[in-house]
């Protein structure tokens, strides 16, 4: 039993890496533009499908498809912001919620029309390979996705704090008008931010195929997971996504083991509710609350 729990903890941590990566994209977009991207899970689903089709169609190794989904989702995110969301930045925030809600409907249902609701698995020759360790099994693929996730979050954090574009993004997040006055092209920064957030999400989507089947409806639960992760870690605070992601990964994995996956969603919500009740700024206390 205790071995089972430890195994489940490890699975949760590995899954948490992906949660963290993908929620960092959500948090970035919220922190900079105040946009709650309801279509966020659908971007993850698109990333997963890019990997699936390149693997099936071209026989490409899933890990080699990562650059394609990053590039593809970056372009999509950039265009979404440029063509649509940009028009409602500065309008009451609800406009952006409803707008991304419309995008969620479009993307998820187009995917359903195009690819049907069938779940599809990506199984490689090495999918079953494990690192056996003190009676525990660590699937190599999941371990690698975990390390990539940590690396990319680190890279994102570094970019935001040390590159010129990153500083411009932060300046824009703090005060849009001030940024405009200092010569920052705010529209371009917003599009870049959304592109960046979408790209990270696409990357996470490509890696999530190591954990589950690919299907058009997979996005919605991930959107909810992103909400919970960023509330746990603090909305708009990137390092918070890492903490929130790991916690949620563990909670999800352990509660699925003890109950069922349906209960795990309910427990996740309950956790979200407790956070909103007692500590809305997140465990780190650095979230944007009002």
């Amino acid at each position: 039993m205790s071995m089972l729990i430890i195994q489940s903890l490890i699975n949760g941590i590995l899954m948490g890496g992906i949660y963290a990566l993908y929620s960092a994209g959500f948090s970035l977009i919220f922190g900079v533009m105040g946009v709650v991207n309801i279509a966020h899970g659908d971007l993850l689903m698109l990333g997963a499908f890019i990997t699936f089709w390149m693997f099936i169609g071209l026989g490409l190794d899933p890990f080699l498809t990562l650059p394609f989904s990053v590039a593809g989702l970056f372009v999509l995110g950039y265009l979404m912001q440029r063509l649509a969301i940009n028009r409602v930045v500065g309008a009451p925030p609800i406009m952006s919620y409803i707008l991304t809600f419309g995008m969620h409907l479009m993307i998820s249902n187009l995917a359903l029309v195009a690819w049907t609701a069938d779940p599809r698995a990506v199984t490689t020759a090495y999918s079953g390979a494990n690192l056996a360790f003190l009676g525990l099994t660590l699937p190599w693929i999941k371990l690698i996705t975990f390390l990539i996730s940590l690396g990319v979050i680190g890279l994102l954090y570094w970019l935001l704090n040390h590159s010129q574009t990153g500083r411009a993004i932060q300046a824009t997040a703090q005060d849009r008008e001030m940024a405009r006055l200092t010569g920052i092209k705010v529209d371009r920064i917003y599009a870049l931010t959304f592109g960046l957030g979408a790209a990270i999400t696409g990357l996470a989507g490509s890696m999530v195929v190591a954990f589950q089947d690919v299907e058009p409806g997979m996005g919605l639960p991930y959107t909810i997971i992103a909400f919970c992760v960023v509330v746990l870690g603090g909305m708009g605070y990137i390092p918070g996504a890492l903490i929130g992601g790991l916690i949620l990964g563990i909670v999800g994995s352990v509660s699925t083991m003890l109950f069922t996956s349906g209960w795990s969603i309910a427990i996740t919500f309950f956790l979200l509710y407790l956070m909103l009740l007692f500590r809305p700024a997140g465990i780190t206390g650095k979230g944007i609350v009002e």
Partner: peptide, 24 residues
């Protein structure tokens, strides 16, 4: 009491969670 974003998020997750509870 919080930003509108939190309300949108919580209600969105609520419906999903309640459906799961009803299922389980």
């Amino acid at each position: 009491r919080l930003r509108g974003a939190y309300f949108a998020i919580a209600t969105f997750a609520l419906a999903e969670a309640l459906m799961q509870v009803a299922e389980e």
